[in-house]
Amino acid sequence: MPIEIKELHIKINVDESSKGQKSVATFGKEEKSALIASCVEQVMDILEMREER
């Protein structure tokens, strides 16, 4: 006999206070260019895979 769930209660606690320092990554011009080039290459690969289908 299957069990049917009619209600589901979910409770979460969000702590918005900062308990530590947030680190911010800084990139140089060359690192930004390399990152952008990598992202573009991955997007182009995905688009090529979609066209093959």
Score class of each variant (00 low, 15 high):
Met1Ala: 14
Met1Cys: 09
Met1Ile: 06
Met1Tyr: 03
Met1Gly: 12
Met1Glu: 08
Pro2Leu: 11
Pro2Tyr: 04
Pro2Ser: 06
Ile3Leu: 12
Ile3Glu: 03
Ile3Lys: 12
Glu4Met: 10
Glu4Ala: 11
Glu4Thr: 15
Glu4Gly: 04
Glu4Ile: 15
Glu4His: 14
Ile5Asp: 02
Lys6His: 15
Lys6Pro: 02
Lys6Phe: 08
Glu7Ser: 08
Leu8Asp: 01
Leu8Val: 07
Leu8Trp: 04
His9Gln: 12
Ile10Gln: 07
Ile10Phe: 05
Lys11Gln: 09
Lys11Phe: 06
Ile12Cys: 09
Ile12Ala: 14
Val14Gln: 07
Val14His: 05
Val14Gly: 01
Asp15Glu: 14
Glu16Met: 15
Glu16Phe: 14
Ser17Lys: 08
Ser17Tyr: 05
Ser18Glu: 05
Ser18Tyr: 04
Lys19Pro: 01
Lys19Glu: 08
Lys19Ser: 10
Gly20Trp: 03
Gly20Thr: 08
Gly20His: 04
Gln21Tyr: 02
Lys22Glu: 00
Lys22Trp: 02
Ser23Ala: 11
Val24Pro: 00
Val24Arg: 01
Val24Ile: 09
Ala25Cys: 10
Ala25Trp: 01
Ala25Gln: 12
Thr26Asp: 01
Thr26Asn: 01
Thr26Gln: 11
Phe27His: 13
Phe27Cys: 06
Gly28Met: 01
Gly28His: 04
Lys29Asp: 09
Lys29Trp: 03
Lys29Cys: 08
Lys29Pro: 06
Glu30Ala: 15
Glu30Gln: 14
Glu31Phe: 02
Glu31Ser: 02
Glu31Trp: 02
Glu31Lys: 03
Glu31Pro: 00
Lys32Cys: 11
Ser33Ala: 15
Ser33Arg: 15
Ser33Trp: 02
Ser33Gly: 14
Ala34His: 03
Ala34Phe: 04
Ala34Gln: 09
Leu35Lys: 11
Ile36Asn: 09
Ile36Val: 13
Ile36Arg: 12
Ile36Pro: 00
Ala37Asn: 12
Ala37Glu: 01
Ser38Arg: 13
Cys39Thr: 07
Val40His: 02
Val40Cys: 02
Val40Phe: 04
Gln42Trp: 10
Gln42Leu: 05
Val43Arg: 02
Val43Cys: 06
Val43Asp: 06
Met44Arg: 08
Met44Ile: 10
Met44Gly: 00
Met44Pro: 00
Met44Cys: 01
Met44Glu: 08
Met44Lys: 10
Asp45Thr: 08
Asp45Leu: 13
Asp45Gln: 10
Asp45Pro: 00
Ile46Lys: 07
Ile46Thr: 07
Leu47Asn: 06
Leu47Glu: 04
Leu47Met: 05
Glu48Trp: 03
Glu48Asn: 10
Glu48Lys: 05
Glu48Val: 07
Met49Gln: 13
Met49Lys: 14
Met49Leu: 09
Met49Arg: 12
Arg50Phe: 07
Arg50Val: 14
Glu51Asn: 09
Glu51Ala: 11
Glu51Pro: 00
Glu52Ala: 14
Glu52Ser: 15
Glu52Thr: 10
Arg53Gly: 12
